[in-house]
Amino acid sequence: MSVSLVGDIGGTNARFALWRDDALHAVQVFQVADYSSPEQAIGVYLDGQGIARGELQAVCLAVAGPVSGEEFRFTNSHWRINRSICCAALQVEHLLLINDFFAMALGMTHLQPHERVNVCAGEADLSRPALIIGPGTGLGVASLLRLEEGRWLAVPGEGGHVDLPVNDAREAAIRQAIAEHTGHVSADTVLSGGGLLRLYHAICSLDGHAPTLATPAAITEAALSGEPVALAVIEQFCRFLGRVAGNGVLTLGGRGGVYIVGGVVPRFSRLFLRSGFAESFADKGCMSGYFQGIPVWLVTAEFSGLLGAGVALQQALAGTSGA
């Protein structure tokens, strides 16, 4: 029985799995810092699975950044992937490199009902694009469109780097306070793990509080325990996310729904679900009515990127990839 390997590689973690029968098997997570190259980490994974070099049908690796040419260099780690070297090391003919949010978008096609939480009620129009947006190390954005015969087209972009939208004097003051330290303030500047900390310092500065929390995790923990400043930070984070997601829906005509992914929001999901996200999402003046009936989900699936890499590989081998 043919088997392929899929991977989802970030700056800190590399996730690998076998792809067989339209499903993931034997998922393992490796620390990037522990290995000199992706080929070495994959070799250790294959040895653990009892799979010899040359036995894989194909390999698909989802990587953070634009993919083109023979070589890919990771922004946040020492790893790099040379297509020819990687194929030779693994003794595989088919190597597909894809953007990580391309994979994340395709992963939405395999979600199970228990792997998403309803944020805004509605019915997805599958003839229109869906928006996938995810605060993590940075802010990822992609779109997903259903094609004929059950195929899917994912389109990654750089929507995380649009200007941060503001809607009142308070939000303008927050953006200006952040800009004094960062210069240009993109959505990614705030809607990310590091952005949570920038937002905390800006709010402390504006409101006259001495900052006492040093990490995004500490801010989240304080908010979950009811600390007022941290709660204000999380609330503002959710409102900014709503504004950016709403802009994305208008740009795409995204009545196919919105999937909120990434590692940040699920850590404070209870606060998110009762935040001003939904209000800010649809706060678009004369176009506010456009958002009626557009569903929004918070995705809790652990390995959506790996699933998407499997879908991408399956479509590529069938000659139908949109990568």
Rank of each mutant, 00 (worst) to 15 (best):
T251G: 09
F268A: 03
V264G: 11
E235I: 10
F240T: 03
G254D: 15
G242N: 10
G254L: 13
I260W: 04
A245G: 07
A245M: 08
N247V: 12
V258D: 13
G263P: 00
V258P: 00
N247H: 13
R243H: 09
V264T: 13
G253F: 11
Y259K: 08
V244Q: 03
V233Q: 04
L241N: 12
G246D: 03
G257C: 14
E235R: 10
L250I: 14
V264A: 08
C238Q: 06
V264R: 05
A232I: 05
V258G: 06
I234S: 08
V264Y: 11
G248M: 09
V261G: 03
C238R: 05
F240M: 11
G257W: 10
F268M: 02
G248N: 10
F268N: 00
C238K: 10
L250A: 01
G256P: 06
E235L: 08
L231W: 02
G263C: 01
R239T: 10
A245R: 03
I234E: 01
P266E: 14
G253L: 09
G254I: 14
R239V: 15
C238M: 10
V249Q: 01
V233D: 01
P266G: 14
R243M: 12
F237Q: 01
N247R: 10
G254V: 13
F237K: 04
R255Q: 08
G253M: 11
V258E: 07
V258M: 07
R255Y: 04
L252D: 04
Y259D: 05
I260L: 15
G253W: 02
V265L: 13
V265G: 03
A245W: 06
G242S: 14
V264N: 05
R255A: 07
G242A: 02
F240C: 04
L252F: 12
V249N: 00
L250G: 01
I234C: 13
F237A: 12
A245K: 08
T251K: 06
E235P: 04
R255L: 11
R239S: 14
E235K: 00
V265K: 02
C238T: 07
F240E: 02
V265P: 02
Y259L: 13
G263D: 01
T251W: 06
V258K: 05
A245N: 05
R255V: 00
L241A: 14
F268Y: 09
G253S: 12
C238I: 13
L241V: 05
G242E: 03
R243T: 10
V264D: 11
G257P: 09
